[in-house]
Amino acid sequence: MAIAPEYWLLVSAAVFSIGLFGILTRRNALIFLMSVELMLNAGNINLVAFSYYYGNLTGQVFSLFTMALAAAEVAIGIGIILVLYRNFGEAEVTLANTMRW
C-alpha cells in the first residue's frame, strides 16, 4: 500500500518552509547556507515523489542535476563566506551593508 501523494507534497512543503524560516531569521552565514540547501532538497523530494507515482524516471534524473547544482552553489557560497570573514572578522550576513566606493 503506497503513501498518498499529498503527504509527500506536505513533507516537501514543510522542509521548504523550515528552510525559508532559516533564511529569514538567522544571522550566521553558514546557517543561512544550510537553510538554502534545505529549500533545494525540498524541491528534490517533490521531483522524486512524482517520478515514483508516474512510473517514469525523468523526475529522479532531474533531481540528480539539481543536486549537482546545489553542490556547485555551496562551493561558491562558502568561498564568499570566507571572504566575508576575512574582511569583517565575523561570518554574519548583517555586516556587509554598504557598497564600496
Binding site: 518552509s17 524560516f21 515514483y52 512510473g55
Partner: peptide, 29 residues
C-alpha cells in the same frame, strides 16, 4: 519567520484539497 509559517499553511491547505487521479495512485512503483 511568520511569513514562512504562513506560506506553509497556505501550501498545506492547497495540497490537502487537491485531487489526484486514482490511476495515478494505484500504479506506483
Amino acid at each position: 519567520g511568520l511569513a514562512a509559517v504562513a506560506l506553509f499553511v497556505v501550501m498545506a491547505a492547497i495540497f490537502l484539497r487537491a485531487e489526484f487521479p486514482d490511476a495515478l495512485v494505484e500504479t506506483v512503483g
